[in-house]
Amino acid sequence: MKKAENLSTRQQPIRVLGGLPMLIIGIILVAVLVVLVFVGSSNTRRILTNVFLYCTMACMWNLLSGFTGMTSLGQQTFVGVAGYSMAVMVTTYGMSYIVGWIVGGAIGAVLALVLSLILFRMRGMYFAIATWVIAEALKTWFTSWGFVGKGGGMTVAGRPDRTMVCLLALILCVVAIVLIYFLLNSKIGLGLTAMRDDADAASSVGVNIFRSKLICFVIAGLFCALAGGLYYRYNGTILPGSGFDIEWTVSLVFIVIIGGIGTMAGPIVGTVVYIALDEFLAKYSGWSNIILGLIAILVILFLPDGILGTLQKKLHFEILSQRRFSKE
């Protein structure tokens, strides 16, 4: 697959949709979304909040799996921890939800740093399973921990200002995308892409791969926590079984695969498809995961590069490309 990629690079130059035109399109898009947040119905706001939050997390999962080769099945760890932080700060200590949000994010980042001590000793499937085990262990622990209400979970006190939360979600999403863009175009991103494309070349770039991976993992932990905090402020109730649910990662995997793993804009496309499908399938409760699972398997079989990845290869363009490392 990598060979083919290089081949197509050689045959036809790739047009990169970036720079000023993309910036203008992006600003217009964000402006439209801001207007929608304020004028839209409460249902529109709910859907938009979900889009922004899932998009944030999917971009982060893509950063981990698609660009640094760390397939995590445990991003729900950060969602759950941040959700509980929000609930504890607001309900138990009577703080404002902004404080709860920031505390949740900080705990997420620190947790990522601590977990990296264990997780970075593993590779591939061991890494994947270990991240999941950690989330399950937290779920089991929280289910019997009195401070967080055991299996009954917690409620985030007060009525949320949903317009504000939705707006914060949008800001979070934009910051996440911009951050990933600059990260992948920095020396760190160059090193990571080099490692992904050609392990030998990576050492010659002279980038500390371990540190780069650590930075990505902590950033992913931080943003998944921030997204989780907002999600539970918006929805109000958190249970051990929902906060640390593998379902979170299921969604992220689905979004990234559908959109195109390892492409910059794939998760954005994937999120829109996912949320649309999710809203549509809500009518057929019970069937949604079956249909999502089938779609994911079919996409892996027949469109291994996802929707955006396939389009990009066919039409020779890239949206917000990161610089590629190649031997030529």
Binding site: N289, G293, I297
Partner: peptide, 8 residues
């Protein structure tokens, strides 16, 4: 994918 299909 198989695991989530089977579960549901």
């Amino acid at each position: 994918g198989l695991s989530i299909i089977l579960q549901d």
